[in-house]
């Protein structure tokens, strides 16, 4: 036999339908539901959405590739460049946003401020490949 609750709460009177008053109050308030697909969605100032790159600022250093936890960023070879007497490889980043978790670590670590997170979040697609971002190609080459 379980003892009955003797705490402070059980001494207060119980009632059936204690929520009725609040229910009618709520019924005449504005519903909380946001009609999202039919209206704009509000996101916070700091919201981390789709990743975007400024190809002009990007130097192809590859730090973002090293820090990306989701292996979104792959550096691809674009050619060679002469620095003094040495020939060094030039690279550009490509982004597979399908696996991107929008953590923003690459943005934090980019010294050239080439990366940023936009407020865009509607990334649903039927084609995985359409999420591969290879912006740097057009400008660099």
């Amino acid at each position: 036999m379980v003892e009955n609750d003797a705490s402070e709460d059980s001494k207060k009177g119980m009632k059936v339908g204690g929520a009725l008053g609040e229910m009618f109050r709520t019924a005449f308030q504005r519903p909380i539901t946001k009609k999202y697909p039919f209206g704009a969605a509000q996101v916070a100032e700091r919201f981390r959405g789709k990743l975007d790159i400024d190809p002009v600022k990007c130097t192809g250093c590859g730090v973002c590739e090293a820090v990306c936890p989701a292996s979104v960023i792959q550096m691809v070879h674009t050619g060679t460049r002469k620095v003094g007497t040495r020939e060094i490889e030039t690279k550009r980043p490509t982004f597979d946003l399908y696996t991107c978790i929008s953590c923003g670590q690459c943005v934090d670590d980019c010294r050239f401020e080439a990366l940023r997170l936009t407020h865009e979040f509607e990334l649903a697609t039927v084609d995985k490949k359409s999420l591969v971002m290879d912006k740097a190609l057009k400008v660099v080459n």
């Binding site: 003892e3 609750d5 059980s10 207060k12 009632k15 339908g17 204690g18 929520a19």
Partner: peptide, 19 residues
């Protein structure tokens, strides 16, 4: 505070949770 009062007083909920 309102919900705390409600869950400790609404009888149908109390009989389902107390004990």
């Amino acid at each position: 505070r309102y919900y705390r009062d409600l869950v400790s007083r609404e009888e149908t909920l109390v009989v389902r949770t107390r004990g």
